[in-house]
Computed example of a mutant assay.
Amino acid sequence: MQVKLKYIWTNRFLYLLVAPAFILTIIFKYVPMYGAIIAFKDFSPSKGILHSDWVGFEHFRDFLTSPNFEVIFMNTLKLSLYGLILGFPVPIILALMLNQLRGVAIKKNIQLILYAPNFISVVVIVGMTFVFLSPTGPMNAIITSITGSPVMFMSDPDYFRSIYILSGIWQGAGFASIIFVAALAGVDPELHNAATIDGASILQRIRHIDLPTIKPVMAIIFILGAGGIMSIGFEKAFLMQTTLNVTTSEILPTYVYKIGLQAGDYAYSAAVGLFNSVINVILLIFVDFVVKKLNEGEGLY
């Protein structure tokens, strides 16, 4: 015990440096978990959390047996899974391409262009999407000149996932590539010089030097992405949702919002949200296990 106290005192300034982040995490991440018990109660605001009646897993059963469950769950899963599969390689490709640029000025300008969309508000992105894909927008102007009739992108359920995922990749891929660019900065230039002298092409150098270097980072990013596969953003899906595309745009976060805040059924919405969180934890553990098996024991934890 004395050894531990001595160690803490010796490193007291480091602990003080970490303390604000630790305290904020406890306050905003762990303390609110207390409210999750309303998922197991017939919650009434007048009675409060403690005095509301226990109902056990009744809300979970109601959700799992509801006619909307399969549609909402599959919409959430498909949107997240397709987004992960299509969006995960793009930042890596961008980082590898940027790493090949030797002109400092050109590289900075390209990075600025790629990073800029990340700082645009989701509301603005959705507004731009509606304008760009509207019946009188630039995209339909080209389509109309060829086919003679516009395509109703934002009201057709078949286009919702593609628009959501592609606009998300455009907005976030550039900024997400920063991690991989930083990892590639640690590659010894002598390795590339030696490979070039031996006659290795650019693709061969990328395959045998760059990719092995960022492989651990790729594994961690993929695990985190797969662990949050059910936690897609509420704002963008809700803003892009219309009465005509609701069959594919209705996902768990928007459903929780409508049931909890609009309909006032807090206990049922808490059960749906808790179910979503449990699925995320299971996916995180499973994907980390698989990656460890495929990546020689290197995983998230």
Rank of each mutant, 00 (worst) to 15 (best):
E235K: 04
P138K: 06
G172Q: 09
S66W: 00
R161K: 02
Y268K: 12
F132C: 12
H192S: 03
A183S: 11
I143R: 00
A183L: 14
Y255E: 05
P216D: 13
G35M: 01
A267V: 05
I209M: 10
G260M: 01
N118R: 05
L239T: 02
I251Q: 10
E58M: 02
S145Q: 12
A176L: 04
I143Q: 07
I37M: 02
I214H: 12
I27G: 13
Q100F: 03
M139S: 11
Q100P: 03
S155F: 13
I279D: 01
M74G: 00
I214Y: 12
I279L: 08
G168R: 05
Q2K: 09
V124C: 07
A219R: 06
L94E: 06
P150Y: 02
V131D: 12
I85P: 05
V281K: 02
I110Q: 08
E250Y: 09
G148W: 11
G103L: 13
K258P: 11
V256L: 04
E190A: 12
F130Y: 14
F238P: 03
S177D: 06
I106D: 00
I26V: 15
V3G: 09
I232L: 15
F289I: 07
N99H: 08
K4F: 10
F28S: 01
V246W: 00
K292S: 12
P67W: 13
I23M: 03
L14A: 10
A176T: 10
A105I: 08
F175T: 04
H208Y: 14
M33L: 07
S46F: 13
S201T: 14
V126I: 12
I220A: 10
A182S: 09
